[in-house]
């Protein structure tokens, strides 16, 4: 594993991910997630749907597949406008910091063609720039899909951070092979409700 990938997946990378909860804030508000067991179930569901899709696309972007085509395919897999907006905001912020940390023609080209790519596209192209393999890029995207919501749950519910990390450690990372389209109706519902919520700690 290259050191660049460790930096890329570190939650301290100043790319704005800390402001997103991946539906967790709304799930907590609606009582769907209220303890460690319901958190684990939420994260497992998120990993095998949104996480698997993100992993597949990050690995393809890392492998050099046309990012514009991948971005349009991700739009087709993201019915919720609130989720598209959150994905593009995080993609734009990641691309902005990546261009400053790892200046490269590949990132300049991506920014020229897609100023606000879906996050897995920005992650995949950056992963290739730092020398990671497509498989590692996929794992990084899956990791991103669950660590943000898990950390948000610690803050929202006051859960034991060590216990939450034990949950993360036992989740099965999906194989990034192929391009899945797994959808999660409740995540759509939560994202749309959250965007309309007047008081919120997280952007998504």
């Amino acid at each position: 594993m290259t050191p660049g990938l460790l930096l890329l997946t570190d939650s301290r990378l100043p790319a704005g991910s800390h402001a997103h909860s991946g539906g967790m804030e709304q799930a907590v508000k609606e009582g769907l997630v209220h303890d460690l067991a319901s958190l684990e179930s939420f994260l497992a569901g998120r990993l095998r749907t949104a996480g698997a899709v993100a992993a597949g696309f990050a690995s393809q972007a890392c492998a050099g597949h046309d990012p514009v085509e991948l971005d349009a395919e991700l739009d087709a897999r993201t019915a919720s406008p609130a989720q598209r907006e959150a994905a593009r905001t995080q993609g734009r912020l990641l691309l902005r910091v990546a261009r400053r940390i790892w200046p490269s023609p590949a990132l300049e080209e991506l920014a020229g063609r897609l100023p606000s790519p879906h996050h897995p596209i920005a992650l995949g192209v950056t992963a290739a720039v730092v020398g990671a393999t497509p498989r590692e890029a996929g794992a990084a995207a899956a990791y991103h899909a669950v660590t943000g919501p898990a950390t948000a749950a610690v803050r929202l519910l006051g859960l034991d951070p060590v216990a939450v990390h034990r949950v993360l450690a036992t989740l099965d990372l999906p194989s990034p092979d192929g391009l899945p389209a797994a959808s999660a109706p409740l995540l759509d519902l939560l994202a749309e409700r959250h965007r309309r919520s007047p008081v919120r700690l997280f952007v998504s």
Partner: peptide, 30 residues
């Protein structure tokens, strides 16, 4: 279930949903 729709040759909607294959998740169907 798998749903693939294209409009004018461009992808419009692609969704896949697994039912009854695992524990209920409050992220998927509750």
């Amino acid at each position: 279930t798998r749903f693939d729709a294209t409009a004018g040759g461009r992808p419009l909607l692609r969704q896949e949903l697994e039912l009854g294959t695992g524990p209920c998740s409050p992220a998927v169907l509750g």
